[in-house]
Amino acid sequence: MKKLIFLFILLSICSFANSAFAKSIAVIVHVENPTETLTKKQLIDLYMGRYVAFSDKQDAQPLDTFTPENLRTLFYKRLVNMPLSRVNAYWSRVRFTGRATPPEIQQSEQAVLESVANNPSAIGYVFSESLTQQNKQGIKIIMELYE
């Protein structure tokens, strides 16, 4: 019996973990931003301070977010296959040599949505499932990142 309970708990944990990792991440910009899509390389360039502009050479302002937990970790894992500590190590090379500043960190997905809706230069990311008809006003999805 104990073994069955343990197996059940283990399967539940795995199922929960899988569902967290399977969530897609939507990359969003202002609805009037002329960018319709990005390649993964362009997104890497934007988020890693290499070339911080859209295809039409307009400056971009990338945004990160603290919450929900794991969103930022998953985003960078899918983008550059690095844990956050290595992303931070990379940024310490870029930032402290005066090459570029890292993305501005917002407190929540809602703050990211509001910033993007109010700023044509902003680009951010949220879990796709967090988007509703209401909070999608003023933004558009230009890319989705999957596991």
Binding site: N88, A89, S92, R93, F96, T97, G98
Partner: peptide
């Protein structure tokens, strides 16, 4: 004043977290 970019790591050799 900028960091002197002599070799590959010269600009961030004092920033231990970077390597």
């Amino acid at each position: 004043r900028t960091q002197l970019d002599l070799y590959l790591l010269t600009e961030y050799r004092d920033i231990g977290f970077a390597y």
